[in-house]
Simulated assay, not measured.
Amino acid sequence: MEMAKNAALVVVDVQKGFEEEAFWGPRNNPAADDNIAALIDVWQMTGRPVVFVRHDSEKAGSPLRTGSTGNGFKEYVEERRGRGDGPELLVTKSVNSAFYGSPDLDAWLREAGVGQIVVVGIQTNMCVETTARMGGNLRYDVVVPLDATHTFDVAGPFGWQLSAEELARATAVTLHGGGFARVVTTKEVVDAAG
């Protein structure tokens, strides 16, 4: 796999509020945080652009609501912000896609001449998948290291329930099989970017 010298790492919603297990339920992939941290480190060491995305929930009971402790980035993300040699951007949003945030992510990427993005973060099947799909629709070369994402069990219609692992696999198949993104591992991305 080839990783462009100016490929942007888009770190989606790695916020403290997602640590509230009582609210979200069981999660998958306990290694996600270590993998996300490793990718941020490689991006910062190589001077590539990093985009930190924060979900500012407008829902009163959400652990991610604006002004709450849970709205802040997890410590390992916060301590890395501003430490790289490359460009950095903070995008805030209240919907699933980082492309519908502020400032305009698409405009920032295009102005910087970025054609490839690596999307990581939380939740695999929600904001990560939506951002990756939209990135694909906008003609970016989108890479999703699946093991640098995680999600939670979800109940749906008709009494259906899917585990976090089932949802992650469904996202991987949809993104990769549907041509929205290449779904890979963190190691593959690190090896290509180093």
Rank of each mutant, 00 (worst) to 15 (best):
S94Q: 08
F152D: 03
V154L: 15
E2M: 15
T92I: 12
K5I: 04
G159Y: 10
E79S: 11
T130L: 10
D41G: 13
R27I: 07
V118W: 11
Q161T: 15
G194Q: 10
T149Y: 11
G135Q: 04
V12D: 04
M1W: 10
Q116P: 03
D56Y: 07
V14N: 05
T69C: 07
E165S: 03
N35G: 00
E111P: 01
K74P: 10
L90S: 12
V114D: 06
P157A: 13
M126Q: 15
N125Y: 12
A168D: 01
D41S: 14
W43A: 06
V50S: 09
G178A: 03
D85Q: 13
N29L: 08
L89P: 07
A98C: 01
N71Q: 07
A98T: 01
H176M: 02
L109S: 01
Q123E: 03
S97A: 08
R182M: 06
R133A: 01
A192G: 10
A112V: 00
E2G: 09
F158C: 08
G121H: 09
A192F: 12
P103G: 03
T92C: 04
E21W: 06
T186G: 00
L90I: 03
T124F: 13
V154T: 14
W160P: 00
V95R: 15
V183D: 02
Y140P: 03
T151C: 15
T69L: 12
E111D: 00
F158Y: 14
V189E: 00
R27P: 10
K16F: 04
G113T: 11
C127Y: 07
L167G: 02
E188R: 08
K16N: 02
D34H: 15
N71W: 02
T149P: 05
G156V: 14
V173K: 09
R80A: 14
K93Y: 01
G159M: 10
A31R: 12
L89V: 02
I117E: 05
N28I: 03
D104Y: 12
D33H: 05
A132Q: 08
A155E: 08
A37M: 07
T130N: 12
L90Q: 13
T130P: 08
T130C: 10
W24K: 12
G72I: 12
Q123V: 14
V12T: 07
N35F: 06
V10G: 07
A164E: 07
V53I: 13
A8C: 04
N125P: 05
T92V: 15
Q15P: 01
D191L: 11
G177P: 02
A60Q: 08
I36R: 04
P145S: 05
A4P: 01
V120Y: 02
A4Q: 11
R110D: 04
V14W: 06
E79G: 08
E129D: 12
R169A: 13
N29P: 09
R65D: 01
S163K: 03
D33T: 09
V95Q: 14
Q44L: 09
